[in-house]
Design a protein around this nucleic acid. Sequence first.
DNA 1: CTGCATCCCACGAGATACTG
DNA 2: CAGTATCTCGTGGGATGCAG
Lengths: 142, 142
Amino acid sequence: MSVANTAVSSQVGPPASNGPCGDDHCGIRDVLDRLGDRWTVLVIVELSKGVRRFRELERAIPGISQRMLTLTTKRLCRDGLVQRTAYPTIPPQVDYRLTPMGRSLAEMVNALADWSRDHMDAMADARADWDAEQEVPQHSPR
Amino acid sequence: MSVANTAVSSQVGPPASNGPCGDDHCGIRDVLDRLGDRWTVLVIVELSKGVRRFRELERAIPGISQRMLTLTTKRLCRDGLVQRTAYPTIPPQVDYRLTPMGRSLAEMVNALADWSRDHMDAMADARADWDAEQEVPQHSPR
DNA sequence: CTGCATCCCACGAGATACTG
DNA sequence: CAGTATCTCGTGGGATGCAG
């Protein structure tokens, strides 16, 4: 797929149904703001593997706090990406699963993860290179 | 396009097994941390349209400050996603362009933007729905 | 087990001023 | 024009404790 100088794919704003902000980045921010935080993506990835209970998520995502897990899942529910089901048992039991929309987002995220895996070495390399170039108060690069 | 498993859509749920990358979330974080901040994505999108000078970027991205533009472009350069070219003229002139790797990332970002446009209405709807449900001590929404 | 509230700190990011 | 340096502030997010 040639993407060379022609931007990517849908740079051209659809004339009718879209183009609220004159600029190109209409609703991108909306999604990116969700994906931007530290945990949302990880929760989505985990839930893409199947239904999970609260504690299961917590254990599956090392480092997340209850607070953050609660907030994250709540936001995802609010956005219609995750469905929460609570059983009025004792002790209480709640499980979370992706909605169809959530699953389609998960696909995107996974594509990104794929890309990430494919390029992370190149990025690390470039970074090291750049760092070295900036860091030479003395000379003799090696 | 990718290397390994694509599409998480198949809700594989190996019993007590982990997903694509063992247990950790590979380098997703690495990429997401970049995409997470407020401006990186917008800069990438803008640069996906072609070579841009510093001021051009600044004007093209309403709301960004010089500081943030400098930091963002610098990070992108460091990661090998953007190439910076400075001409020792007076006044100084610098331009930025995506590297091949940067362009491939731009494709991903654009796919995400695409998805976003496709689903933002559904998300807004779900959000309103959820909000209403939480906010109504009384019922009969008349 | 789930979830919410509070305190608190670190960091992203805006505004402004200055250099080359 | 391009970039750096400071100061400040809002907020994301960790730790802890309480409640259903």
